[in-house]
Design a protein around this nucleic acid. Structure first.
Lengths: 188, 188
DNA sequence: GGATAAGTGAAATACACGTTCCATTTATTA
DNA sequence: TAATAAATGGAACGTGTATTTCACTTATCC
């Protein structure tokens, strides 16, 4: 379904698709990059038409690029769940998530009202993983049980994103956030 | 400097300026409104050219509209500071601020990288007011003193905004946020 | 009411995009 | 190497914007 249908795919097309993906991914780590097809194409050393053709449309390219960045984050969440206690996993992961978001805030800023299927699926995976951490931490007695787990997850996700956004102009924010939020989440 | 320079200003021009401002202000309360000059003009019953001319450029109109919405919020902050204890002021204002932001999230979403002088000034006033509340609450012993007041203010502002954004899809979020954050802010 | 300058808005312009065309180039295979 | 289909990218196109133009309308003042 994704491999040769009736005809062959040329090697240079495959390589160029990869170049476009690399360029887009790299741009997402650059604050204030504009992420237009032109800019991505120039960075990849390709024409704009080639970049678009390789993915069908611009949004598909963005979806692929974001997914590639998000995938290791989801893996990391699962790894932490497997290797340590839920409480520790939650604390460590939250800090790492903020760092990731701060380093790629194009992902959150420029991609507001877009339909990116692969990205959406990965985000769901990520939410599931955090919910598992919170659920485990509740059983360990380190997270309050008077707030719905799903709401707690949303609260964490949204506020962490906000902190990541604002971090560039206030580096101390992250530590303050983690201190206040994790304290506030403890049972009374 | 803002009143008649060498010639007269016609009454209908003044009235139309007001209509444009009203239209823009109203649109900011409508979620998913597009805030283009065309849309604003149609809503005001005017031509696009008239709307632009009344303010010089679109951004100046947006600046005026946002300022008009933000001004009462700043006044309310000062009123609370004058009328009640810092701790109570902080709690009440935070809840009201979130409600305001949720009701006008066009202000936060569509106006990302714009230069809006009046709005920026008002935002600074608002930050100052919240800093006063936090400072007072610290002296009352309800807010921890191991975090810099400015950082605390930033933390409150950014996370409150995030919660307001997400509220539509999760109404319980606001109460959860206020509970967790204000608990987390208490001295240990 | 008439003269005059101010104001109006539909249409033209300018610009930044994503996307598509198509004449040319290039990989692939025999 | 020749034949063929795939791929390329500069240019054209379509769309959605803000802004400007200009022939016309209207408020203002005598």
């Amino acid at each position: 379904m994704s491999t040769p249908a009736g005809t062959r795919r040329r090697a240079d097309a495959v390589r160029n698709r990869q170049l476009a993906l690399d360029a887009a991914t790299a741009l997402m780590a650059e604050p204030d990059a504009s992420l237009t097809v032109e800019v991505i194409a120039r960075k990849a050393g390709l024409g704009a038409a080639t970049v678009v053709r390789a993915f069908g449309c611009k949004d598909a390219l963005l979806d692929a690029a974001v997914s590639r960045l998000l995938d290791p984050v989801v893996r990391r969440a699962r790894e932490l769940i497997a290797e340590t206690t839920p409480t520790r996993a939650l604390h460590v992961f939250l800090r790492e998530l903020i760092a990731f978001q701060a380093a790629h805030h194009a992902i959150n800023d420029q991609l507001g009202g877009l339909d990116l299927p692969a990205t959406t699926a990965l985000r769901a995976d990520l939410v599931r993983a955090v919910e598992e951490m919170i659920d485990g931490a509740r059983h360990e007695g380190t997270v309050r049980t008077d707030i719905d787990p799903a709401v707690t997850t949303t609260l964490l996700g949204e506020t962490a994103l906000a902190v990541a956004r604002a971090q560039p102009s206030c580096p101390e924010l992250v530590e303050a956030y983690l201190t206040v939020l994790l304290d506030g989440l403890r049972p009374r």
